[in-house]
Simulated assay, not measured.
Amino acid sequence: MAQVRRSPLADQAAELLLERIRSGEWALGAKLPGETTLAPQLGVGRSTVREAIRQLAGRGVLASRQGAGVFVTALDVPEDWDVVLRRADIVSVIEARIAVETEAAALAAERRTPTDLRTIRRAFDHRDQQRGETVELVDADTAFHRAIVVAAHNPILTELFDGFTPRLRQAMIDMLRLRGDHGDDADQDAHADLVEAIAGRDAGGAQARSRAHLQALKAALT
């Protein structure tokens, strides 16, 4: 059984526990042995084991349940979201946007307030004003779609959308420059239809229009 040899002890103990979890010694949902068992196995004191468990809990691998013990909640450290997005190709990001934005559009149609609708309409008008530009249109388009996501009143959807934005922005700018497409009438009309579906509280229509728009964007990138 591998034991800790150098400091910082808690960091090493955490890594040794993580290696054992990765190796399959404990299944997902399994309860870890107690500190009195783990401490001699790792060659450290119980306080070091506690700190190692806290580290892995903070990384999403373990969870302490009061009165029940420590349980495995992931079989590896979840990868940083920014790293995942940087590595993902743009089509994968668009597919993720479809999942997020089509649901957000439906929820926005159901939940939008008068203030939300005014914000969406202002963003739509600003997007219209930026047609013929490149960077400005991409940023105005992002603001428009974000206004719809915000109107869904689901903070997790908003956070996911904001995570996509930096990864997608430059790709969209490059695509517009290559195609020379800076928001034609058909594109703006499609966005107008989405606004009206949300205004009319047509959840199914908003979802369908959002999906059609993003599927067309995906097709343009492939």
Rank of each mutant, 00 (worst) to 15 (best):
A147K: 04
I198T: 12
T102K: 09
S210W: 10
T37E: 15
H191D: 15
A192R: 14
P33L: 15
G183N: 02
P8V: 06
A68H: 14
P33I: 13
R86Y: 02
R5L: 09
A123W: 02
G34A: 08
E101S: 07
T48R: 03
A105V: 05
E95L: 14
A109W: 06
D139S: 10
D174H: 09
A63V: 08
T165W: 11
F161R: 08
S92I: 01
T158A: 14
S64D: 10
E101P: 02
G200R: 05
L28A: 02
L217C: 00
V135L: 15
T48W: 03
F161N: 09
G204K: 14
Q3E: 08
T36M: 09
W26G: 03
A10L: 04
E35P: 05
W26Y: 12
A152M: 07
I94N: 11
A57K: 10
P155F: 03
T48F: 01
D162Y: 01
D82C: 07
R65F: 15
R22G: 13
A74R: 12
L18P: 02
V84P: 01
D185P: 05
V195Y: 04
F164G: 06
D128C: 03
L85M: 12
E95M: 13
H213Y: 12
I98S: 00
D82R: 13
L42A: 02
Q129Y: 07
A105S: 14
T165G: 04
D76N: 06
E19W: 03
R20D: 11
R97I: 05
Q41K: 10
Q3M: 11
E15S: 07
L194F: 07
V195P: 00
G60C: 05
R46E: 14
D82F: 09
T115E: 12
W26L: 10
R59D: 10
V49Q: 08
A27R: 08
V44R: 06
F144S: 00
Q129I: 03
I94D: 09
D189G: 00
R6T: 12
V49L: 08
R122E: 08
E101W: 03
T165F: 13
T142I: 14
D184F: 04
G29I: 06
E35H: 14
L75R: 15
D139F: 11
A208V: 01
H126S: 09
R112W: 01
L16Y: 01
G180V: 11
I198P: 00
P114R: 08
G45D: 10
A208T: 07
T48M: 05
E133L: 11
A104H: 10
T142R: 06
R201S: 15
G67K: 07
E15Y: 00
F71N: 03
L107S: 11
V150E: 13
L56K: 00
L194G: 01
I120Q: 03
P166M: 08
E159Q: 10
T113K: 09
D187L: 11
L56C: 04
I156A: 11
G163R: 14
V70L: 06
S23C: 04
G60M: 06
G29M: 11
L176N: 11
L17P: 02
Q207M: 11
L176P: 01
L56F: 01
H126Q: 09
M172H: 06
E19F: 04
V70R: 02
R6A: 13
D139C: 08
G200I: 01
A147Y: 00
V138A: 02
